[in-house]
Design a protein around this nucleic acid. Structure first.
Lengths: 315, 315
DNA sequence: ACGCAGTTGTCTAACTGTTGTCAAGAAATA
DNA sequence: TATTTCTTGACAACAGTTAGACAACTGCGT
């Protein structure tokens, strides 16, 4: 990605695309000609201009073809199925490692990320995460790189091997990468809208960012409002953007009384047509109390995706 | 000094400009001729006279081209903007011809940014900011777009026309753009290193991010550690990355006793060779108390740049 | 085991697009 | 006076375009 210029102008030449996807320009053109796996724009002079999304898709295709899937078959498959396949395949790293050994699995990426964090090397951390998201596809990246990395940092912190400085540096970089994902996915006119935030007194926004990125990858038009947001503000924002759903992340262990009544207030204010999805460690802990007030509780990113899917079908 | 934004006094020949931007005079003229990427003034005899703004803009463009963006496309992006702001200008307000001074459309950009913020349109806000940075160059962008936009949001908040949700959304996007700048300017071997953070109990990190971006644009290798960082952590990090300087941002109105003693501690811990620069609203308020303990206080981004320049010369 | 048809990555050839650099003589600058 | 910069047009080097060819490989039926 690195740095895209802006969503609609973010266009990369074949050379850059080849470098970032690990394919040769020849292959890139052959795949396009034979299977229409991508449809890059063209410059005035007729040169191909690939979007960030094209690069993601192509990297994913490369990874899957290397694992034995035929490109012809993959080309007929939707992006969604592609990512599902990626998820299934990523568990079992190929038994025969590639000769060059540049085939990173999710574990290698999160190890490299932790390493960069410990060295306070923000540039390297960013590079690692970006590569991971491109080669693995966003859903796999979130589940198997970002989450484990955050967990690793948390663990390192409790063991005393990772300091607050390390943690801040990593959060900053991860926030940036997740923010990038939020805007890489092209939003269509008809995309359902989701408001993502963290309710009052919940200052940890990583969960919310993860949720936002996951939703964006599922094709939602995400409005990300950050942490510690008063209920009336959430309501007003949902109204302003015409949201089809609201998702909140709650991680602090004990759910206080105020929070439950806050959520009740929000639940009521949204009206019956707009669902409220709540996730995060603390949400699972208190699932009963939350479901009883009409809030949908999800235990994992995967479950969150399912909820989004259901919801989208109803819209 | 090279960074002081005073376009009327600072005029540079091609040679100087070439040296500062890292481009050859040939390329400079070619870019101007082919893409109208700059429009330098002329001496009486017709020699090109580049402003500081031109230089900053050109060096940003050079970095972006090195990252794989085509100069033609980059030029197109900022060209669009100049035309657009010019149109809006002539249509809406002052029939007075615009003084080709430093605010060159910066006002239009920050107005557009505020507008996008009010509409909760993160994508548009991002696009506006990115284009502004390419059109104006990083320092001018920071001084005349980001700072006014933040100020405008603050003012809107106190007037009740901007809510917390708007503010959060904007902060998120601005953080991302500033992070992007940090990245674009990275990779320079032998660049002096700067650690940027916010001391304990100072949760507003925007000032620190601005400082980080400004320093990066001046050629520093910035390690950005975020907000609310304990003194021992700052010290340890400065040690770990081998910092040549530490910069802190302090915005909360009242400087408490704890903060002063914290800074004293930090000042002592850094040793005499590593300067400690502190900026932000609250720092100016308490300048005397801070300077007396050996801390350098800066009142503006520009002053911060000067301090960095001095410092760099000494390294 | 063998051959066949389809698949797939790579390559060539001829051409166009993009971009950095240069030449030459005139003019400005220090 | 010695340098530097000016302009215009040209050019080379590289990158990217199409169309088609080719060989290595696949799976499959015999």
């Amino acid at each position: 990605m690195q740095s895209a210029i802006s969503p609609d102008t973010a266009r990369h030449t074949v050379r850059v695309t080849a470098q970032r996807t690990g394919l040769t320009p020849h292959t890139l053109r052959a795949w396009e000609r034979r299977y229409q796996v991508v449809a890059p724009g063209r410059s005035e002079g007729g040169q191909r201009l690939y979007s960030d999304l094209d690069i993601q898709r192509l990297s994913l295709l490369r990874r899957l073809t290397e694992r034995g899937h035929s490109i012809a078959r993959l080309a007929e498959v939707s992006q969604e199925d592609l990512e599902r396949t990626a998820r299934e395949d990523s568990g079992s790293k190929s038994p025969e490692p590639k000769p060059l050994g540049d085939d990173f699995g999710a574990k290698d990426f999160s190890a490299a990320a932790l390493n960069a964090t410990r060295r306070l090397d923000a540039a390297e951390l960013h590079a690692v995460l970006e590569r991971a998201s491109i080669t693995l596809g966003v859903p796999v990246f979130l589940d198997q790189v970002v989450v484990p990395t955050l967990r690793g940092i948390g663990q390192g912190w409790s063991e005393g091997t990772v300091s607050i400085a390390h943690e801040h540096l990593a959060s900053g970089v991860i926030r940036r990468v997740l923010g990038w994902i939020l805007r890489v996915y092209e939003i269509t006119e008809s995309a359902p809208r989701l408001v993502v935030a963290t309710p009052p007194r919940q200052a940890h926004e990583m969960g919310a960012m993860l949720a936002g990125a996951a939703a964006a990858a599922e094709g939602w038009d995400v409005t990300y409002l950050g942490a510690d947001l008063p209920i009336p503000e959430i309501l007003a924002s949902a109204g302003q953007v015409g949201a089809n759903g609201v998702a909140l992340s709650i991680v602090y262990p004990a759910i206080d009384r105020g929070l439950v009544s806050d959520l009740e207030l929000l639940r009521g204010g949204l009206g019956s047509r707009i669902p409220l999805i709540v996730g995060g460690y603390a949400a699972s802990q208190d699932r009963d109390r939350l479901t009883s007030i009409g809030v949908q509780v999800v235990d994992s990113l995967d479950q969150f995706r399912e909820s989004l899917d259901d919801l989208r079908d109803r819209v």
